[in-house]
Amino acid sequence: MKQAPIKVFFIGSGAIGIPAVMALQESVEIDLLGVASQPDRPAGRKRRLTPSPLATWAESEGFSVHKPEKVSSQEFVDYVGSLKPDIVVVIAYGQLLRENLLHLAPFSCLNVHASILPFYRGASPIFSAVLGGEKESGVAIMKMAKGMDTGAVYRTHKVVLEDQETTGSLELKLADVAGKQLVKDIQDVVHNGLEAIEQNHDLATSCSKIDKSFGLLDWSKSAKSNLRKIFACQPWPGTWTYYQVGDKLKRLAICKASLVNSSSSKLTPGEIVVEDSCLQVACGSLDFLEVHRVKPEGKREMDIKDFLLGAGLTNGDCLTSVNH
């Protein structure tokens, strides 16, 4: 006898969840009951109310997206309960769920977390994996528990990080994996008795929310550390430094760079070497970062050779992390 479609209610906000909810919508084995996301928030220079990336997609597909201020409010929990879901799926939502929602459905809440748990629990697992120079990451399919990403794990789908992996490119990889695997994972949980295995909590690491100020480069750190930050901060918040123009400091966004061996003698961190339309920056570990693309304050992104034509920088000048 053919099994009835599994009734799923979906909760998410980040773009990483879009391939997953698309897969749920398209699968004949799933009955997607509804979608919830964060309320619209001010965004951009004009601070206009803007839906979350996932809500934007869902609304374009004709979903009436629910946007409760508090996901565990009794009103919202009662609404989801009235739909009688078999399981609730949560991806990159941004609020902790309380027990009244965690235990609402017969198969509880399933969370797709963007790390290999128990590592990188918290708000910035993709960013933190890139910043940490990890060789692999993945999505953990987890049975949600009361704590932050502490639940038992049903299955983990791993991916390899490339040498120049950015947060943006890794998010796309993990989103694709989640979209391809989620339907089968749900089926195995609901119909095939897939059991979750407790995490080794002694090995747990955590990562906090990243704010815009994190993108400021610190030349006293190693070149490798600064390069990882450049990768991790793409596409947001970007990385930057400051350079002297007359008696003023101007902001310079560093968009692309690489490690380089330099024959220069020991220089002060932030001191630059300009040669053959190339710009190298001394770092705190006696190594150098070569800058390839930049975005000067108030201008477009450009190759370093175009920037150097008008910047007036010479050997011995310094880039700085201090804006005063």
Rank of each mutant, 00 (worst) to 15 (best):
Q3M: 08
Q3H: 08
P5Q: 03
F10Y: 14
I11L: 11
A15C: 00
A15L: 02
A20Y: 01
L24W: 03
Q25W: 02
S27I: 06
D31Y: 03
D31H: 05
D31T: 04
A36D: 09
S37C: 12
P39M: 14
R41E: 14
A43K: 12
L49F: 14
L49Y: 10
T50A: 02
A58I: 14
A58H: 11
S60M: 02
F63D: 10
P68A: 11
P68E: 08
P68W: 11
K70F: 12
F76A: 11
G81K: 15
K84N: 13
V89Q: 03
I91T: 01
A92N: 11
G94T: 08
R98F: 13
E99G: 07
P106S: 07
F107H: 14
S108Q: 15
S108V: 06
C109T: 09
C109A: 09
S115P: 10
S115G: 09
F119D: 09
Y120P: 06
R121H: 03
G122T: 07
A123V: 05
I126E: 01
F127P: 03
K135T: 13
G138R: 04
I141D: 03
M142P: 06
M144L: 13
D149Y: 10
G151Y: 04
V153L: 07
Y154T: 06
K158F: 01
V160G: 02
L161D: 01
E162G: 10
Q164N: 11
T166C: 00
T166D: 03
T166Q: 00
E171M: 00
E171T: 06
L172P: 01
L174I: 00
L174P: 00
V177S: 00
V177Y: 02
K180V: 00
K184W: 00
I186W: 05
L194E: 08
N200I: 15
N200V: 15
H201Q: 15
A204C: 10
S206D: 03
S208R: 14
S208Q: 11
F214M: 06
F214V: 13
L216G: 10
L216K: 15
L216V: 08
W219D: 12
A223Y: 12
C233W: 03
C233Y: 02
C233H: 00
P237Y: 14
P237G: 08
Y243H: 13
D247T: 14
L252R: 10
A257I: 02
S258M: 05
V260Y: 02
N261K: 14
S263N: 12
S265C: 05
K266R: 13
Q280C: 05
Q280N: 07
V281N: 11
L286D: 15
F288V: 06
E290H: 01
H292C: 04
E297W: 10
G298M: 09
K305C: 03
D306P: 00
T314G: 09
C318T: 15
H324E: 12
H324Y: 09
